[in-house]
Design a binder for these strands. Structure first.
Lengths: 117, 117
DNA sequence: CCAGAATATCCTGCTGACCGCATATAACGA
DNA sequence: TCGTTATATGCGGTCAGCAGGATATTCTGG
């Protein structure tokens, strides 16, 4: 994990929001992230791909849905840095609203059951 | 301090190297950083200016020399994140060599006495 | 006032990031 | 096989970041 790439990945509002949301929620599919961000799906998908290529996040296919989570092999210093950021910014905007928007979302795919909208 | 700007500032090898060196050494003038980086002075200066505009570092004029240090008003979460990075990367390249290069530099301006090169 | 050292800024070209839109792929159910 | 849902990718235009080189600014000492 080259640090330059990691910080470049964090240097975008949407990516930082998604990453902090993943850090707080554990694992989310693209439709959940799209809903929480209030952004267009292709944009969410492309920014997720960017973070995946850098090794920040990992994807897992489960039927129609693709779940993203923090990459398990992320070095400890990166996890510590992210934890510091989440601790400092998680309670403020826009991250608080992001979690709220996610909570009010209906028909979320839980695990692998239930259907989506 | 907007996080995007902070991470964008860290998303460049030269800036990250300079910042970690400042974090380790406390305060350095431009000529010391230029020597340690082995880069052209205008480039060092411009990247320092970029970090200054974002609020990452602060400059202090002392005669001919301008000393840079980590900005005192940096929020705690940013300091924690930087500490995690420094702790994880400080012992490896290129940051180890940077400190070594700085140590072998002659005629460093100490405090405000002594002349430079 | 003049020379020189340390630092900052201007200019130009270039590459890469970003966006919006449209479309392609993959999986599931009937 | 067909339609539908979820996700990814290709394309074109625009804009910001970056490098190099030259030059300007600021301070010091004489």
């Amino acid at each position: 994990m080259e640090p330059d790439r990691l910080f470049a990945a964090l240097a975008h509002p949407l990516r930082l929001r998604m990453l902090l949301l993943l850090l707080a929620e554990g694992e989310l599919c693209v439709c959940e992230l799209t809903h929480a961000m209030g952004a267009a799906q292709p944009m969410v998908s492309r920014h997720l791909a960017q973070m995946r290529e850098v090794g920040l996040v990992q994807d897992r296919r489960a039927g129609l849905w693709i779940h993203y989570r923090l990459h398990p092999d992320l070095p400890q210093w990166a996890r510590d840095a992210l934890a510091a950021v989440a601790d400092g910014l998680g309670r403020s905007e826009p991250h608080r609203s992001d979690r709220a928007a996610l909570a009010t979302m209906g028909n979320r795919p839980e695990g692998r059951a239930a259907c989506c909208s």
